[in-house]
Each structure stands twice: as structure tokens, then as C-alpha cells.
Amino acid sequence: MKEFALIFRLKDLADFQPSPEQMQERMNWLAGIAAQNKLVDKGNTLLPIAGSAKTVKADDVVTDGPYTEIKEFISGYIVVRAETIDEAVTMAKENPIFMVGGNIEVREVLKRD
């Protein structure tokens, strides 16, 4: 079994605060993966808001917020267990994030020993 990080990205800060229904859908999705015993790490939410996000660059340049150049920001991540990357992609496809224009990056985890 391999491990894959699913990295969630959103375009609009307004989508970051989910409605109770959206929250329920996300929970259902996450628990559905856990119910298959394929959740390695339920991950964390990464706050994109002022005061909670800064970007540090060369030459002592510090800007507020996440990378805004790419017009989308990372909102969180989880780690799942799967035989192949396709299986991890199948899990990702069922996430409700696409209804609000978000996307998910799937990356195989190479463990540092």
C-alpha cells in the first residue's frame, strides 16, 4: 500500500467557511474513507485568513496571506492509503469541493526515514 496526500485548493475565500450542509458533506466523505480503513491522517485545515497566513520569500520579503499569484490557496490536506494513484484519485473525485470550484492535488508520499 502506498500513501497519498490529497491537497485541497479553493479559489474564493468565501468558500472557506462552509455551510452546515457543506460541512456535513465533507465529514461524510472523510468518514467514508476512514470506514474503508484507508485514512492515514485526517490532516488539518490551513487557515488562509489575515493574521494566520504569511508567505516568506528571499531577501527578507514577507507578505500577508498565502501565495496569491496563483489565484487559489491551499485550504487543507489529508493522507490516504491506496494501492495505486488511480485509487486515490477515485477517492478524491467524490469530494464535494468541486461544487464550489475547488480542486484537489493528489501526491504520492515519499517517507523520510
Partner: peptide, 28 residues
């Protein structure tokens, strides 16, 4: 049942068990 499902969702995140997975699906 929505409440029960939410509780099962949280429970399965704490620790996987086949019985919890099945009961959660019943609530679903």
C-alpha cells in the same frame, strides 16, 4: 439519524473498526 451519522463519522475518525464502519453505513 443525521445526529447519529455525525457521531459515527467522528467515531470512525478516532479509530477504525469494521463494526463502526458498518454501523455508520446503516446510519448513512
Amino acid at each position: 439519524w443525521p445526529h447519529i451519522l455525525q457521531l459515527y463519522n467522528q467515531l470512525i475518525l478516532i479509530e477504525y473498526s469494521p463494526m463502526v464502519a458498518l454501523n455508520r453505513t446503516f446510519a448513512f
